[in-house]
Simulated assay, not measured.
Amino acid sequence: MSEPVLPPLPSDWLRFRLGEQALGWLSPERAARVLPLLPGARLTDQELRWEGAADLSAVMQAAAEALRAQGAIQGWRGEAFACEAPLAEPCSARGTELFRMERAAFRFFGLMSRAVHINGWRPDGRMLCGRRSLSKPTDPGLLDNLAAGGLAAGEEPLACARRELWEEAGVDAALSAALRPGGALRTVRLTAQGLHDEVLHVFNLRLPAEFRPVNQDGEVAEFLDLEPGSLSGFTPDAAAVIAYAIERGDHKELHGE
């Protein structure tokens, strides 16, 4: 199995392993916090290895809650992500679910998660983009795609895309029925919360000229029609998704070019 392309990590970061499966990355300080929370876990100078438990989800969730109580995890969402068995090509297939845990803890453990991003295209070629609310726990105030969100445990990408479109932009079921899949890409980067490792499932939607978005959940401060050439001011993931879609020519396909 191939490893993801990683940004430069500090030399003392440790691999988090469940048995023989390499799942995440931890700083030494985070590893020290985790060690007493996983019964039987072993710490070396290279890895934190844990053989698991009868109910992985219960133990990992309890560990996340303990870390939250210590102030080590912020931005708690009360939503679970699924941790998958590693695959060589996670952008083209999904691994077996190993456990579920609060999504805010995934960066702490450096675990791979999944999200959906939807590019909204106007008939004149401009993109309809949202500016993230200042209350968002990650990337507040930055520009985003028309809609985007984490893939909840047990959820399919298309269903997630339709849900996020309604919650963030007021796109109803009739309009979101025109969604087109646009592939997937993987982004990996260091953040203040830990390692962000996520597969982004991309969708594209052609919007009528008269469509006006209406945010439903308070997570979008405003919407803007923008030329797709400049990626300044976007979240790293949104910028990657837009560049990926343009490279694929998805906007031309939507407009029959």
Rank of each mutant, 00 (worst) to 15 (best):
E102F: 08
A177Q: 11
P8G: 08
R189F: 15
P137M: 07
P90D: 00
G19D: 04
P181A: 13
E222G: 02
A62L: 01
A80D: 15
L23D: 00
P123A: 07
V241Q: 01
T187H: 14
D45S: 15
R206F: 12
D217A: 13
G183M: 06
V202L: 07
P8F: 10
S232W: 12
G52A: 05
A82N: 05
A173I: 12
G233D: 06
A93N: 11
G229K: 09
E3M: 08
G229E: 12
A174L: 11
D225G: 05
D124A: 02
A105Y: 04
R122V: 01
A174K: 10
F211H: 09
A169G: 04
G170F: 10
A54R: 10
D172F: 10
A41F: 03
I246C: 14
S230W: 03
V202K: 01
L175H: 09
E51D: 15
C91S: 09
A178M: 09
N204K: 13
V5L: 15
R163A: 07
E102L: 01
I246W: 07
P90N: 00
R103Y: 15
R68S: 05
R49N: 07
D139S: 15
G120S: 07
L195R: 03
S92Y: 06
Q61S: 10
L43Y: 04
L146P: 00
C91H: 04
V214D: 11
P236I: 11
E253Q: 14
R132A: 07
V171H: 05
G75P: 04
I242V: 09
R68M: 06
G141A: 07
L226N: 08
I246G: 13
A58E: 08
V34S: 01
P157I: 09
T191H: 00
V202G: 02
G183P: 05
A31G: 02
A240H: 03
P39T: 07
G52L: 00
L175P: 05
L128R: 03
A173G: 09
T44N: 10
L48Q: 00
E156H: 15
N145P: 08
R162P: 11
S2K: 11
G256K: 02
P236Q: 03
A161L: 05
L26W: 07
Q216G: 07
G120E: 05
P228V: 09
P36L: 00
P181F: 12
R100V: 14
L146I: 13
L43F: 09
E20G: 05
R163M: 12
L87P: 04
A173Y: 10
A240K: 03
L195W: 14
E257V: 14
L142E: 10
I118F: 04
S113Q: 12
